[in-house]
Design a protein around this nucleic acid. Structure first.
Lengths: 192, 192
DNA sequence: TGTACATCAGTGAACGCGCGTTCACTGATGTAC
DNA sequence: TGTACATCAGTGAACGCGCGTTCACTGATGTAC
């Protein structure tokens, strides 16, 4: 197949990125390049016209994930009634929808431990991505100073991510339900 | 090589289990059977005299992990001065040692998301393991009733696990240090 | 207590399979004049 | 505006490698008499 126009090339690049960011979140970082490309109707050879390596794709896909989730939570906060932004964020983060759809939500409960095992080069590049996510949502946190709000963001989000990861690890549906409800009530009480 | 005595066979079984439980925690569930056996001076073919499949090994190794960590935290709680058991547990869980040595500590911050992606059969078998871990440590939690203490265990441990997983994902050492200290102070304040 | 035989822990080669990456090739797109 | 040529997105085969699992074989251990 022949060369493509610059706009088509850019579109393909974005399609790979978006699909990878969904697949990594729902299936983990071990998702294969051949599978990703096949899902898009492409062959694996063409991948390297868009990314230097799988690690490169991973960094870009995770960055996109944090951007998507940041934007989504920002919108939820903005649409909430006055003074209810933080409550809305917590309810959304600990919702049934987030539990059931890792692919369109936060990367942390899906991939945090795997990111921790990535090469240092990858993790350094993701630091700024995560700090940007924190910056974007800190404004909705409790606290007098920006620093205090940033700290509360770290505590709230790492806590909710841990809760969601634990709930997802349970097999029994009833157990999952009870644990998710418990976590939601707790974080609303402590942070909202 | 010939057949081994029943005691030697049992020892080898335990050696595989213990090593696997360390390796899964430090490198993730993708650790290979050939590597595990080689580390113990054995060849991969012999693995199937001890376990039916890798999934079987995984379940047993994770079960051992929770038992080890449960026992370890229990001892820390028992050795603590009167009324300091919970404080001692939180300080140990959010210690530099836990941050740096996933292989000998809690499975949750290392593997919770990966467990969530395992076949249902595996997850169902791990439910009881995790509930036993909860049962064992709930007695040190705040709360009037056993149920309340169990709930506080879930919230505290999923929160601390999430914090540890996030801290481990950071590349920058300074950032890690600050985030770990922040989490420790927070959980001591909220739960101790 | 001694002998004959069945059991099975561990080896090492092989199974089919999937991985990330490379590469010669194609032909439409983009560019230079 | 039209022509000649360079570029490069995508294909499909191949690279070396590692995966989980199976299997014939070995010989000391365990067992039955």
């Amino acid at each position: 197949m022949p060369r493509r126009s610059v706009t088509d090339t850019a579109k393909t690049h974005q399609r790979i990125l978006k699909h990878a960011s969904h697949e990594f979140r729902s299936r983990g970082s071990a998702v294969g390049i051949a599978d990703l490309m096949k899902d898009l109707g492409l062959t694996k050879g063409g991948f390297y016209r868009h990314f230097d390596s799988k690690d490169d794709l991973f960094v870009d896909a995770i960055t996109l994930s944090f951007q998507e989730t940041g934007e989504r939570l920002e919108q939820i906060a903005e649409k909430a009634p006055d003074g209810q932004a933080r409550t809305a964020i917590i309810n959304a983060y600990l919702s049934q929808d987030h539990l059931d759809h890792p692919e369109t939500w936060c990367t942390l409960p899906s991939l945090a431990p795997e990111i921790g095992r990535m090469p240092m080069a990858v993790r350094k590049r993701l630091d700024s991505t995560m700090l940007l996510y924190a910056e974007r949502l800190s404004k909705y946190m409790k606290g007098e100073t920006p620093q205090e709000r940033r700290q509360n963001f770290m505590l709230l989000f790492s806590g909710m991510a841990g809760a969601l990861a634990l709930v997802r690890s349970f097999g029994e549906p009833e157990l999952k339900q009870r644990a998710l409800d418990l976590a939601r009530e707790h974080y609303l009480k402590i942070f909202a």
